[in-house]
């Protein structure tokens, strides 16, 4: 690597940033700000926006994408792309619709089943990428297509019924105010904060920044990559589970829309697609923004035909903005 290329020109200008500047200019902070702005707009145009019912709906809508994006973040941070997200979501959705299991016990078994499916796919990905050293986009493209195929084998057309307990309870609220889906997202975020403080968690950032240097620092690159893919796969499983709760039915192509949106959420959340920088919470909020944007546009009177145009430009602007903000602060600090 070119050591000189990354050498900061001014040690005292670029380097010493106070913690609050760092925090404020982080991707997660920017995307949270975006979420708040969007929500304010939404509330302006749609008075019901502040009701618990609307909020629960928003969270329910965003939960599958948010959790899938959280999983994708693990792989992106370790400098990889995981396309299998679409396959796993389809497969788990079909699994939920073809073999519904009633009651809380059934729901738990279903959830474990979904996680297991994701873990198996993640293990295969990990093996292809970490052991056989295949390119991540290409390898996960293969596993994604295989999973899509399997979903079609299990259920060749949309249909089936997700267990009632899952589709009712998981889209409801606790004490009438706290959305269950929100609790599950919070649990994912909490697990992430714990994971961040493990050697493997730090290892993901190390591998993402510079695989060679990480290896020479004693990090087991193979183990870290495996962990990233398996963790990601399990989260896709949970995403498929939540999607099933929301749609209450099965669709062998349910995961297809996730492919692009997941990366949009990750990028929006401030995670660098070249690895080593960012975090999972930003991706979750990023997913929330993408879903909220649709509602805002609708309530603002924009035809649903054109929401994509806004989504696309928001994505581009968010990336430019996320890059511009830290520079702005740096320039200020130098003066």
């Amino acid at each position: 690597m070119s050591a000189s290329a990354v050498q900061p020109l001014e040690r005292n200008g670029g380097g010493r940033k106070s913690n609050w500047v760092r925090a404020l200019t982080s991707g997660a902070a920017i995307v949270t700000l975006l979420y708040v702005v969007l929500y304010a707009l939404y509330a302006l145009w749609e008075p019901r926006a502040l009701s618990s019912y609307t909020f629960t709906n928003l969270i329910n809508n965003a939960a599958p994408l948010a959790i899938a994006a959280a999983g994708e973040t693990l792989v992106v941070l370790s400098r990889g792309f995981d396309l299998s997200v679409a396959g796993v979501v389809s497969l788990t959705n079909v699994f939920m619709a073809v073999w519904p299991m009633e009651g809380p016990g059934g729901a738990l078994i279903s959830l474990l089943g979904c996680c297991a499916i994701g873990a198996v796919v993640g293990t295969v990905n990990g093996w292809l990428v970490a052991v056989l050293r295949l390119q991540t986009i290409a390898a996960t493209l293969g596993t994604m297509i295989v999973c899509q195929g399997l979903a079609l084998v299990i259920l060749d057309a949309p249909g089936g019924m997700v267990a009632d307990w899952v589709s009712y309870e998981l889209t409801g609220t606790l004490f009438g105010v706290v959305p269950i889906a929100g609790l599950i997202i919070a649990a994912v975020a909490l697990l992430w904060l714990v994971f961040l403080r493990t050697n493997t968690g730090i290892g993901i950032y190390a591998v993402g920044a510079d695989e060679q240097a990480a290896m020479l620092s004693g990090v087991s690159v193979t183990r870290v990559r495996f962990a990233a893919f398996v963790g990601a796969g399990m989260l896709y499983g949970v995403a498929g589970f939540m999607l099933s709760a929301q749609t209450a039915t099965g669709n062998p192509n349910a995961g297809a829309p996730f492919l692009m949106l997941v990366f949009a959420a990750v990028a929006l959340g401030g995670t660098s697609l070249s690895g080593g920088r960012g975090g999972l919470i930003g991706s979750i909020v990023g997913a929330g923004c993408l879903m909220l944007l649709q509602k805002v546009l609708f309530s603002g009177g924009v035809s649903s035909f054109y929401t994509g145009i806004f989504q696309g430009f928001v994505l581009i602007l968010a990336i430019l903005f996320g890059r511009f903000m830290p520079r702005l602060f740096n320039a200020g600090a130098k003066k």
Binding site: M260, F263, A264, A267, L273, G308, I309, Q311, G312, F313, L315, I316, I319
Partner: peptide, 9 residues
């Protein structure tokens, strides 16, 4: 990201 955004737009 760029080509994806274009695609969505």
């Amino acid at each position: 990201i760029m080509t994806m955004a274009t695609s969505i737009i």
